Amino acid sequence: DETGKFLVLALYDYQEKSPREVTMKKGDILTLLNSTNKDWWKVEVNGRQGFVPAAYVKFL
Results as ranks from 00 to 15, higher is better:
Asp1Pro: 14
Asp1Ser: 14
Asp1Trp: 08
Asp1Ala: 14
Asp1Arg: 06
Asp1Gln: 14
Asp1Lys: 08
Glu2Arg: 08
Glu2Ile: 15
Glu2Asn: 14
Glu2Ala: 14
Glu2His: 14
Thr3Glu: 13
Thr3Tyr: 14
Thr3Lys: 13
Gly4Tyr: 10
Gly4Phe: 12
Gly4Met: 12
Lys5Pro: 13
Lys5Met: 12
Phe6Arg: 13
Phe6Val: 15
Phe6Trp: 14
Phe6Asp: 09
Leu7Gly: 03
Leu7Met: 12
Leu7Ser: 08
Val8Asp: 00
Val8Cys: 11
Leu9Val: 15
Leu9Pro: 00
Leu9Ile: 15
Ala10Trp: 03
Ala10His: 01
Leu11Gly: 04
Leu11Val: 09
Tyr12Glu: 11
Tyr12Met: 12
Tyr12Gln: 13
Tyr12Ser: 10
Asp13Ile: 02
Asp13Trp: 03
Asp13Asn: 08
Tyr14Trp: 12
Tyr14Val: 01
Gln15Leu: 13
Gln15Ala: 13
Gln15Tyr: 15
Gln15Ile: 14
Lys17Cys: 10
Ser18Pro: 04
Ser18Phe: 06
Ser18His: 11
Ser18Ile: 04
Pro19Asp: 13
Pro19Lys: 09
Pro19His: 10
Pro19Tyr: 09
Pro19Asn: 10
Arg20Glu: 13
Arg20Trp: 15
Arg20Phe: 15
Glu21Gly: 11
Val22Cys: 08
Val22Phe: 11
Val22Asp: 00
Thr23Arg: 05
Thr23Ile: 03
Thr23Tyr: 04
Thr23Asp: 04
Met24Gln: 01
Met24Pro: 00
Met24Leu: 09
Met24Cys: 06
Lys25Met: 10
Lys25Asn: 09
Lys26Phe: 05
Gly27Arg: 02
Asp28Cys: 05
Asp28Leu: 04
Asp28Gln: 13
Asp28Trp: 10
Asp28Val: 04
Ile29Cys: 06
Ile29Met: 07
Ile29Asp: 01
Ile29Glu: 04
Ile29Leu: 09
Leu30Glu: 00
Leu30Pro: 01
Thr31Tyr: 12
Thr31Lys: 13
Thr31Phe: 13
Thr31Ser: 09
Leu32Pro: 00
Leu32Val: 12
Leu32Gly: 02
Leu32Glu: 00
Leu32Ala: 03
Leu33Glu: 02
Leu33Ala: 02
Leu33Trp: 05
Asn34His: 07
Asn34Phe: 06
Asn34Ser: 13
Asn34Arg: 07
Ser35Asp: 11
Thr36Gln: 13
Thr36Lys: 13
Thr36His: 12
Asn37Glu: 11
Asn37Phe: 08
Lys38Gln: 11
Lys38Val: 11
Lys38His: 11
Asp39Tyr: 15
Asp39Leu: 15
Asp39Met: 12
Trp40Gln: 03
Trp40Lys: 02
Trp40Asp: 01
Trp41Met: 05
Trp41Glu: 00
Trp41Arg: 02
Trp41Ile: 08
Trp41Val: 09
Trp41Ala: 04
Lys42Ile: 13
Lys42Ser: 07
Lys42Glu: 14
Val43Asp: 00
Glu44Asn: 05
Glu44Phe: 06
Glu44Asp: 09
Val45Trp: 07
Val45Arg: 13
Asn46Gly: 12
Asn46Thr: 06
Asn46Glu: 11
Asn46Ser: 09
Asn46Asp: 12
Gly47Thr: 05
Gly47Arg: 05
Gly47Asn: 08
Arg48Thr: 07
Arg48Gly: 04
Arg48Leu: 07
Arg48His: 08
Gln49Val: 14
Gln49Tyr: 08
Gln49Met: 10
Gly50His: 01
Gly50Gln: 01
Gly50Leu: 03
Phe51Glu: 04
Phe51Val: 07
Val52Leu: 02
Val52Asp: 00
Val52Ile: 09
Pro53His: 02
Pro53Tyr: 02
Ala54Val: 05
Ala54Met: 05
Ala54Asn: 03
Ala54Tyr: 03
Ala54Asp: 00
Ala55Asn: 13
Ala55Gln: 11
Ala55Tyr: 09
Ala55His: 12
Tyr56Thr: 07
Tyr56Met: 11
Tyr56Arg: 05
Tyr56Val: 05
Tyr56Lys: 07
Tyr56Glu: 02
Tyr56Asn: 05
Val57Met: 06
Lys58Arg: 14
Lys58Phe: 10
Lys58Gly: 13
Lys58Tyr: 11
Phe59Arg: 11
Phe59Gly: 06
Phe59His: 10
Leu60Arg: 04
Leu60Pro: 05
Leu60Asp: 06
Leu60Thr: 08
